[in-house]
Design a protein around this nucleic acid. Structure first.
Lengths: 233, 233
DNA sequence: GGACGAATAGGACATACGTCCTAATCCCGA
DNA sequence: TCGGGATTAGGACGTATGTCCTATTCGTCC
């Protein structure tokens, strides 16, 4: 992790994602920019939560490591996002791990500085509440789906959501969310082996096909019926 | 749902659970008390989130209903608790169902009244942030455990947590959390059938025994080793 | 050009878990 | 007192999914 103080760039980021609206000038003055390299751990489960960040550049993943050796991918982060909000308010150590996937830039302060500022800034607090609420609602849905739907359903929903329905053959291109199958398996809360098995079944059923490195949707109608209404909640 | 205006009782509740600390007098004046009967739905998934409540009496369960007919128990509620906070901030319809298990009393207001008040009450907002953060952290852990541990591990962790280690024979008494096995199966995100199967295995292994309607822990040491460190996160 | 690591592909096998049934008990209300 | 609804108990069976291995392909780096 490296620390920068490029104020001009910082201002651009904060404006771009609308964070400025909620922050007083004096507070903005205290913010610092942090950069992380690909693969670097930005946060480790169990360590004291000493910072709150605004995630403004790059891509990272958040996952939990369990005592039994398994891990669970919670989600991917891309700007704009807030990092460390849960811990700053609940005053606990970090509950997840966060690892940079690309070069990542965050703007933030030590937790206590944030807390002091927030206490006198209702607009910021409302924003934080809204953000926490959205995280909770999204995670609720994600975990319910992971627990109660078959991987087949989840894959179908994923492919349907990620493909571009406008093009003639619905090619699934290089995707923001997952670049390879191992990562996708993690995202869907399953194993690589089972994911390939499931994709193969979709292929055999004539619903998708593979062309080179990406997938093509052949029968969108059936794909959607397999996806149930997973995302309609 | 019935509405009451017993201001004296209301004041007692708000004081008892510390809610008063965060609320202005003027706002407290607008609060109303609502009562629900056992079995009554307090909240239905998809309906407009028109109220925010402080849960002050009784017991209820929160669960999601999925489009494929399955349902997922999120958690049980007992005072003190806040109901509808996620929706009030994210401005979405209710994402879960909430059903009263006993007679339930809640104190609250229409959402927009709450929002107006909160916007000028940083202490309340910080409290809401903390509450949302705790909910998120707890749910994170719960869902990770449900997805990545065996029912055997989860049952063991549950029994260990729920029993009273002080008594000589660790009897598991009538519990706040679950009164029957069907409910427990739901809580643990599993099926009744598989729960009984798992309990039988624990019995056969000499780790627990059944006496009448409740369980007795015979070998706490092995029970704890099966529970791994599920709750130590 | 050869080597080696990442990503894809899939066989073999075990198992945790769900669904569907049936039966026994117990308790409460008509 | 009888009967039906809850609760417990467990047999039978299917299956979604995980673990472990082995190839194959492909790109990158020396």
């Amino acid at each position: 992790m490296e620390r920068y103080i490029d104020k001009a760039q910082q201002r651009i980021y904060l404006d771009k994602f609308g964070f400025s609206e909620f922050l007083d000038q004096a507070f903005v003055g205290k913010l610092k920019t942090y950069k992380f390299s690909p693969g670097e751990f930005m946060i480790r489960h169990g360590e004291p939560a000493d910072h709150l960040w605004f995630f403004v550049e790059g891509r990272s993943k958040v996952f939990m490591t369990l005592e039994n050796g398994k891990s669970l991918l919670i989600r991917f982060y891309a700007p704009p996002e807030i990092v460390g909000d849960v811990e700053v308010f609940s005053r606990t150590p970090y509950i997840c791990n966060m690892q940079a996937l690309t070069t990542v830039a965050c703007i933030g302060t030590p937790s206590h500085v944030f807390r002091e500022h927030a206490e006198s800034n209702p607009r910021l607090l409302v924003f934080m509440c809204r953000n926490l609420s959205n995280k909770l609602a999204n995670f609720n849905l994600l975990s319910a789906v992971n627990q109660k739907y078959t991987l087949e359903n989840r894959v179908a929903a994923y492919l349907a959501a990620v493909s571009t329905p406008h093009e003639s053959r619905h090619r699934i291109s290089e995707e923001i969310n997952t670049s390879n199958l191992t990562e996708l398996a993690d995202l869907l809360g399953s194993s690589y082996r089972h994911l390939t098995r499931t994709l193969k079944k979709l292929k055999n059923d004539g619903i998708i096909a593979k062309s080179g490195d990406d997938f093509v949707i052949l029968d969108r109608k059936r794909l959607l019926s397999m996806a149930r209404d997973i995302y309609s909640f």
